[in-house]
Design a protein around this nucleic acid. Sequence first.
DNA 1: CGCCTATACTTGAATGCTCAAGCACCCGAA
DNA 2: TTCGGGTGCTTGAGCATTCAAGTATAGGCG
Lengths: 160, 160
Amino acid sequence: MPDAPSRPALDAARAQAWRRLMFAVQGLDEVLERQVQRDGGMPHAYYKVLVVLDAAPDGELRMSEVCGRLHFSPSRLSHAVRRMEDDGWVSRRSDPDDGRAFLLRLTDEGRALVERISPRQVAEIRMPVMGALDDAQVEQLDAIAATILDAIDGLAADDC
Amino acid sequence: MPDAPSRPALDAARAQAWRRLMFAVQGLDEVLERQVQRDGGMPHAYYKVLVVLDAAPDGELRMSEVCGRLHFSPSRLSHAVRRMEDDGWVSRRSDPDDGRAFLLRLTDEGRALVERISPRQVAEIRMPVMGALDDAQVEQLDAIAATILDAIDGLAADDC
DNA sequence: CGCCTATACTTGAATGCTCAAGCACCCGAA
DNA sequence: TTCGGGTGCTTGAGCATTCAAGTATAGGCG
């Protein structure tokens, strides 16, 4: 090995791309947060819960299942569900097969809310953003994001 | 049936890439948050303030300047600075040229903290992530992120 | 059966962020 | 010069998230 730098460094191209990626990440977060707050009066994180419920085949999911899909802590979801139940977007019943678990389901109002927010999100954010990329870039992005995801959960494994 | 959908939709490739991008974004956030919390005992957002101060040529920046660079609200920064001043990472003096403004500066401890956190972030996150991409992908990512950023602040302009 | 650990979720306190007000200062125009 | 609007920052209240406990059920193993 030629030399072992005491601190590993990124080459210029990678440093540059990382910086831009960070900006893009922050920008996307901001814009999504704002849209959901404006159209739904709730944080983006809450909307994600509604979306996974909407996508569930039986229309019902265990809380722990939702936690897993969204990388939420049980506590976070618990607080969120209390709020969303109060607001009437979600209902909760205890799982007949497991006394510890609860099943979440969208109320009719909840489903209506998703159907109000979702198309706007597509029209105002996803379309403009993804539409700005050409077909080749879309493929590239897909591959890059997949690679990043692999690298990341490699990291998560290292922590333990 | 080839009808004109009343709601604009994304083609499958773009929908797929968007989904993966969202996952990657969330994953990156989580991993950065965890690292800074672990190594610095503070939220990643606070660390960003330290970083921009560290990078400032004179070692000093106006709060409004920091707000601008990080897209922070004045309120958010104000709360953050109070905490970081209490913790001894940052000092604040009023701008001699403008009685309304304050100048922020890293304390020696603050600088030391950045120098403790930063190389770990490179070693544990940026290197593994960016290193997983080949040179072509790095260029592609840079271009894609730039395009996304353009699309996003096109959106911000629309809002007003 | 009776324990023992693991799993599913809840709760309350502490922290960070947002939002709406408010204060202090700058600056241009009358 | 003083008035008025704009800028820079602070404050306090309310919401979201985290963290550390705590409760309750499930499921295995003696």
